[in-house]
Write a protein that binds this DNA or RNA. Structure first.
Length: 594
RNA sequence: GCGCCCGUAGCUCAAUGGAUAGAGCAGCGGACUUCGGAUCCGCAGGUUGGGGGUUCGAAUCCCUCCGGGCGCGCCA
């Protein structure tokens, strides 16, 4: 539009605190081009650094001048909605007519309602696998990050127009189960071993047995017990596959009990799954999968060396030596975990015809998933290209890693109970004695979910009770509180878009700012989806809420005269709509009052 | 040893390569007899771990060093 052949002009939104509009850095880019020749000459003369220094002032002067010239050359008529073009420093800014832009965006929100920001149907099916808890082990706050994250991602893809299948994959089989069952079957022996070890045992049978198996202790008697445990857990593991055994029945019952516990947690968190896979089921197909991979030439029997007799995928033979080797079947004929993973992946592709597959799993599995996806690719699944490991860092304690063996995990139930109590006591402090349990729950879960989601997934969360239970400032309840306040301003209000579009009201700066942020919602959600980063939405929610409270502070709504009140109520309604949509994406509930 | 990730204010975190690096907490000082004080406003706090490079422009990209986390198993 500015007649500059061959040079792309990109417009960006003006950096937030400044104004509502678009900007281009074209003047600076042009200044750089215009002085390039001279710079080359100077560089030869005095060296690069000195040349740059010398040209710096002229460069910025020139870009200012170019910006001015361009601003004068722009014909505003050609740019609908733009009120003025202005040179500022080396930037060329296009400012929107904020009154018009504000009315337009509020109207758009009120018209589309809860569909505002929603993507067009993509005609593509994406499976999001998350949570994957192990039965016979405790559910702790580390697992919570996964659930909350996976759920938010699934919501984002749904909102983005994809058909989403939420999948869970329960670890209900394997050595950890055998260990837990041994502890249940041999409580006296376990207690005796713990006596020798001293110290308080950790919570949960699995953790207690695990401690006995790994603790340092020189007592020969203790060594005997340990040897017994090792032998018997091996036996239990085999019996798990024999429905006639007594162990099998115990497994069935304890497994069922744990699955119910998990489901109660998901229910409480407002998370549902479309599909539930079980390791004990998938396992049955694992061996056949290994045969298929052998036949396909992806895997091979190892002839010699430390892996002699196993079935491995040697990535060096397939052009990706950096992935090393992956063993699929032991030399004794039993399969490894990854064989189950591949069997499950095959089912996902074939039975559910997924186009994309997301695996929400901790970052420590990063190499593992590279290997798995590469095997799928070698196997011929084109959808393997669209498999993603959604990696997130662990939740740690100030003293280091959470360890069930050392009894340092923060159990889910204790944490949630504490959060609810905190919500109630804060309400009491504020003089509201009759807080409905329901509201306290929403506030507590809002705080928890927001706390986990606002942080970039690549950052380790150091769990701190005080901080996790902070309900002030940049926290979930701040957002909920604003919503509750906004609600009060909407009693008896009915949106009327045609009327709004005719409004002659000139909004105050706080109102314009709120509108500007509302207008950003669409970009926010698509960026969050594309980068698999729900924290973008969480941070957006905070910005949006902050703009609202500033508006609330400076612009009376109910007390304003009719025309102004109508505009402001429309704005509040738009805010509430977007806030509700964003909260829905994060899996956060917004109480009508609190 | 090799690979991946992280390092931003005292603490916890933001910032599609773009303008004066922003919030919350903690600290200090304030707020209209007006729609809800889980709120708002102000002050103070920064060599973006160090160094080099690329670029008109770097917290962001590249190299290197330092510090921290994780992974590299016939575990799951």
């Amino acid at each position: 539009m500015l007649g500059l052949p061959g040079h792309p002009v990109s417009l960006r939104k003006i950096a937030p605190p400044r104004a509502w509009g678009y900007t281009t850095t074209l003047p600076q880019e042009l200044a750089g081009l215009m002085l390039a020749e001279e710079q080359a000459r100077l560089e030869a003369e005095m060296g690069k650094k000195a040349a740059k220094k010398k040209l710096r002032a002229r460069m910025s002067e020139l870009s200012v001048q170019v910006a001015k010239n361009l601003a004068e050359a722009v014909s505003l008529g050609a740019l609908p909605g733009v009120a003025q073009a202005q040179a500022e420093g080396g930037y060329l800014n296009f400012y929107l007519d904020t009154a018009v832009a504000s009315r337009d965006i509020i109207s758009a929100v009120l018209e589309r309602g809860s569909d505002f920001g929603r993507g067009k149907p993509q005609n593509e099916r994406v499976m999001v696998e998350f949570s994957q808890p192990n039965t016979h082990k405790d559910f702790h706050v580390g697992h919570l990050r996964n659930v909350v994250l996976g759920n938010a991602l699934a919501n984002l893809f749904e909102f983005g127009g994809f058909e989403v299948l939420r999948a869970n994959y329960y670890g209900d089989h394997g050595i950890h189960v055998a260990k837990a069952l041994w502890g249940r079957l041999n409580p006296e022996v376990l207690a005796r071993a713990e006596e020798m070890l001293g110290g308080p045992p950790p919570q949960g049978v699995y953790a207690r047995v695990e401690r006995v198996l790994t603790a340092e202790n020189d007592n020969p008697k203790f060594g005997e017990i340990r040897a017994t445990v090792e032998k018997e857990t091996g036996r239990i593991l085999q019996q798990l596959d024999d429905p006639a055994s007594e162990v099998y029945e115990l497994w069935r019952q304890t497994r069922q009990r744990d699955l119910e516990t998990f489901r109660a947690i998901y229910d409480e968190l407002g998370v549902r799954f479309d599909l539930e896979f079980y390791e004990s089921e998938v396992e049955k197909r694992a061996s056949g999968i290994v045969d298929e991979l052998l036949e396909a030439g992806v895997a091979a029997v190892e002839a010699e060396g430390e892996y002699a007799g196993t079935v491995v995928v040697d990535f060096a033979a397939h052009g990706t030596p950096e992935l090393g080797k992956m063993v699929l079947r032991r030399s004794d004929g039993t399969t490894l975990y990854q064989a189950k993973e591949l069997a499950l992946a095959k089912a996902k592709f074939e039975d559910y015809e997924v186009d994309r597959s997301l695996y929400v799993v901790g970052s420590e599995q990063s190499l593992y998933f590279k290997q798995v996806f590469e095997i799928l690719r070698l196997w011929g699944y084109t959808a393997a290209e669209k498999c993603r490991h959604v990696s997130y860092e662990l939740v740690q304690l100030p003293g280091g890693k959470m360890s069930s063996r050392e009894g340092t995990v923060v159990p889910y139930t204790a944490f949630v109970a504490e959060a609810k109590e905190q919500a109630l006591s804060l309400a009491h402090e504020r003089g509201i004695s009759a807080v409905p349990e329901e509201v306290a729950g929403k506030v507590a879960f809002g705080a928890i979910k927001y706390a986990f989601l606002r942080v970039d997934t690549s950052k380790t969360i150091i769990f701190d009770w005080k901080q996790a239970l902070s309900f002030d400032g940049n926290a979930g309840p701040y957002i909920q509180y604003a919503f509750a306040r906004g609600n009060k301003l909407l009693a008896g209000f009915t949106p009327d878009v045609p009327h709004l579009l005719k409004s002659q009201y000139t909004p105050e700066p706080a109102e314009v700012e709120l509108c500007r942020i509302i207008a950003d919602f669409t970009d926010c959600v698509s960026q969050a989806m594309q980068t698999l980063a729900p924290n973008i939405v969480a941070n957006y929610m905070y910005d949006l809420t902050r703009a609202f409270t500033e508006f609330y502070q400076s612009c009376p709504v109910l007390k304003a005269e009719d025309g102004v009140r109508f505009f402001r109520q429309s704005l509040v309604a738009g805010f509430s709509t977007v806030l509700t949509a964003g909260a829905g994406l994060l899996g956060m509930e917004l109480p009508d009052e609190m």
